[in-house]
Design a protein around this nucleic acid. Structure first.
Length: 754
DNA sequence: GCAGCCTACATTTTT
DNA sequence: TGTAGGCTGC
């Protein structure tokens, strides 16, 4: 068991403590994944059968990686582990047990788009104002309820919810929730939240089923425990109730999914549920330089809600954090790209593109970096939401496949019934839905007998469509996923329509569909995928995310959101767009008022870096096509100043001009330089008129005094009346002459010293 | 039923 | 800036 010797004492303790409840608080970079994989390998080497171990992760990627690593230690036996994301594991269990809940085993999994579209149509049917009942808002309300295990029945019973909704001017919310659930059920569909909610229902109402799985899983392991919501937590608690061998691994400082219902209290209160809990702390960081670890510690220390923990490292001091100030978002892109180039030159051949990551708060920020990297001929890849599977043509084919398996899938039906055009317009589709509602029959029933329900003229194409689908169903029963998909793509007319479209976009769409078909072929050819049916494939696809795509290890710079970066590490990390209102996000603060979560997000970003961290912001940024003034993020003043180096304008010019020295890219770089030189750094207005950044308070909040004259973007000139510093909480009462009122300031980033 | 034009509106994060 | 939905005219 030589691999145990590679562990430090707390890691070893976490691995070898197998009996009873165990909580591993794993600081960033402390070898969390190693501990989890070794622990599972250790269990298996001690005679535990893999199918008695349940390991739950947050992403497919994490599950896949862990499985590979375990396989290296224990061999192919690892394939029999019950390991995957919460959603995929419980989708699997729900398929086994679907009949008990009134679903069939080939139920559809609705993605967010399906859910929103369903809500939209219900709001319309109810004749409600969709400005008030915005699908997003309705959906998140429903989602929130489900994640807290509040059924629509309870929701409608409990006056507290009704009161809240009335306060929000949305009294119909309970009715919407009810109808949404009924429609999902009628469609034989579960949304993401249902996969967890219904599992709870299953375990609550069917003790025999619960017992079966309780006895099956001797060991339950949960990764990223800080990101579990109540629904997930209760599932794991129930499953571990018999054997009590539950091991949760997480870091409260990296809890960044509250919008999905994640509740940091699960980890903070875990010991209350398990009085004989053993806790192990992994505090040695193996990833980053001392500078990075110290800076990160200082940032997170501003949070009040956290478990005690002191992350340290014996690594080198490393280089200081570099602060990049840019005039505009375009400049920010150029400076970051230039800096990447410079680091590569400095590092000689030892540093390559894949060592770099650019992390941002919102996906929309990627643009300026893409542009700049492209101009400098630096290869990059974007880890985005769901790019490929979100394309119209891909969703269309998938909807055909979904509908072939489940003819109650209303959202799929709406998508494909007139794609390609068959002369079935919106009016007809509404008629189908209305008829189904009125006569209390399924949509499919109406579709199959459309001439009876809707009359001969309108009904004919609809019935023809139903014949087509029935034929697909016969093929599906006889052939594997690939052959079925190919058949459907051809016979539905989808491929032909795209083939006939000779425009550039049409070509691309046709190729995308071909790529999907290739993907299905690849799925069928992979021996571990069993059975090779359409159902298995769809199940996997519906739970895919952007991060699971293209893990080809080409040498490319990675661009992604901070959320997507969790669990990853890069030698050089650029945390960009450090502007107040953007990061911390204005939305987050106004809706949820959770500054601490935004700070944890910053912490996650910092701790991705191994060797060197860069932080950047722009003074002006394009938003909705308007140039807007930005202020540096309050998080910047939380960085330990003694580790910060500011990139001076001269450095900046150097960074941009460095490419010129390099022979290999001379041509491209010269071109780049020309364009840079020709373009004024600010797209409109003159950069010299920019206020000097030193004038902004956030850099030196201690400069503030009572009586100090200040300027605020919105309120104009003012004078500080009262000051209050307490840790990260800083308050100032400012009297503004123009507005003639006193304002309590919480964000000093809004203030300038006059 | 459908294509094309126009306007209004939105940008937090994701299984 | 880009897209989604509404409106118009065929």
């Amino acid at each position: 068991m030589n691999y145990l010797d590679t562990l430090n004492p707390p890691q070893k303790e976490a691995v070898t403590t197998t009996q009873g409840p165990l909580m591993v608080i794993a600081g960033a970079g402390s070898g969390k994944t190693r501990v989890l994989t070794f622990k599972i390998a250790y269990l298996m080497e001690h005679g535990i059968e893999p199918f008695n171990i349940l390991a739950l992760t947050f992403t497919n990627k994490a599950a896949k990686e862990m499985r590979n690593r375990i396989e290296k230690i224990v061999g192919t036996e690892a394939r029999n582990l019950w390991m995957g994301t919460f959603h995929s594991v419980f989708a699997k269990i729900l398929r086994f047990e679907a009949e008990k809940l009134g679903y069939t085993s080939n139920f559809t999994i609705y993605d967010t788009e399906d859910s929103l579209s369903l809500i939209k149509s219900i709001v319309k049917e109810f004749n409600l104002d969709d400005k008030v009942y915005k699908p997003n808002i309705v959906f998140s309300r429903i989602s929130g309820a489900k994640n807290r295990l509040v059924s629509w029945q309870e929701y409608n019973r409990n006056p507290v919810f009704a009161a809240e909704d009335r306060e929000q001017m949305k009294p119909e919310m309970g009715r919407l929730y009810k109808t949404y659930c009924e429609r999902c059920f009628r469609a034989n569909a579960m949304d993401f939240d249902d996969l967890l909610f219904q599992t709870n229902v299953l375990f609550r109402d069917h003790i025999d089923v619960l017992n079966k799985y309780q006895h099956k899983f001797h060991y339950v392991l949960v990764d990223e425990f800080q990101d579990t919501n109540l629904s997930q937590y209760l599932i794991t608690r129930k499953l571990a109730a018999v054997h009590q061998n539950i091991c949760v691994v997480g870091d409260d400082a990296q809890s960044i999914y509250s919008f999905r219902g994640a509740d940091i209290q699960n980890i903070l209160n875990f010991e209350k549920d398990y009085p004989d809990l053993k806790t192990v702390r992994l505090e040695q960081n193996y990833r980053s330089t001392q500078t990075i670890v110290k800076v990160a510690n200082k940032v997170i220390a501003n949070n009040k809600m956290q478990l005690r923990k002191e992350v340290w490292t014996s690594n080198d001091t490393g280089e200081p954090i570099e602060l990049i100030k840019a005039a505009t978002d375009g400049d920010e892109g150029r400076l970051v790209a230039g800096s990447i180039f410079e680091e590569k030159v400095r590092g000689g051949g030892g540093v390559s593109n894949k060592d770099f990551a650019i992390l941002y708060r919102t996906n929309s920020q990627s643009r300026s970096f893409e542009e700049a990297l492209r101009k400098m001929n630096i290869k990059y890849r974007i880890v985005a939401g769901l790019s490929f599977y979100q394309r119209k043509e891909i969703k269309d084919l998938i909807a055909y496949l979904r509908f072939t398996l489940n003819q109650n899938d209303e959202e799929a039906l709406k998508r494909i019934i007139n794609t390609p055009r068959r002369g079935i317009g919106d009016a007809t589709v509404s008629k189908i839905v209305v008829t189904a509602n009125d006569e209390k029959v399924s949509l499919w029933e109406v579709v199959c007998n459309a001439t009876k329900h809707l009359g001969a003229r309108v009904g004919k194409p609809v019935e023809e469509f139903s014949v087509l689908i029935k034929e697909f169903g016969i093929v599906e029963k006889q052939k594997d996923a690939y052959e079925t998909a190919l058949h459907v793509a051809n016979k539905s007319g989808l491929l032909k329509e795209l083939f006939d479209d000779k425009t550039v976009e049409g070509r691309a769409r046709y190729e995308n569909v071909q790529e999907l078909l290739n993907g299905i072929k690849g799925f069928v050819d992979m021996p571990s995928n069993e059975p090779k049916t359409l159902a298995t494939f769809l199940q996997q696809v519906s739970l895919l995310t952007g991060a699971d795509e293209n893990d080809n290890d080409d040498d490319k710079v990675t661009l992604m959101t901070i959320h997507a970066s969790k669990g990853l590490e890069f030698k050089y990390v650029y945390v960009v767009g450090m502007e107040e209102d953007l990061f911390p996000s204005q939305m987050m603060l106004s809706n949820r008022n959770d500054l601490e979560e935004e700070r944890r997000l910053f912490y996650v970003a910092i701790t991705r870096a191994e060797k060197k961290l860069f932080v950047s912001y722009a003074l002006q940024r394009y938003r909705f096509g308007n140039l807007r003034l930005c202020e540096p993020s309050r998080f910047l003043d939380e960085l330990d100043q003694k580790y910060i180096r500011t990139m001076k304008p001269s450095n900046i010019r150097e960074a941009i001009s460095t490419p010129q020295q390099n022979n290999l890219t001379k041509l491209a770089a010269t071109r780049t330089l020309n364009t840079v030189a020709k373009q004024p750094p600010v797209r409109s207005g003159t950069p010299t008129q920019q206020p000097e950044i030193q004038n902004f308070v956030p850099a030196r909040p201690e400069q503030l005094k009572v009586g100090q004259a200040v300027f605020h973007q919105k309120f104009g000139k003012g004078q500080i009346q009262q000051l209050d510093f307490e840790g990260a909480d800083r308050k100032a009462v400012v009297f503004f002459e123009q507005a003639g009122e006193k304002v309590l300031m919480l964000s000093f980033a809004k203030l300038m010293i006059l």
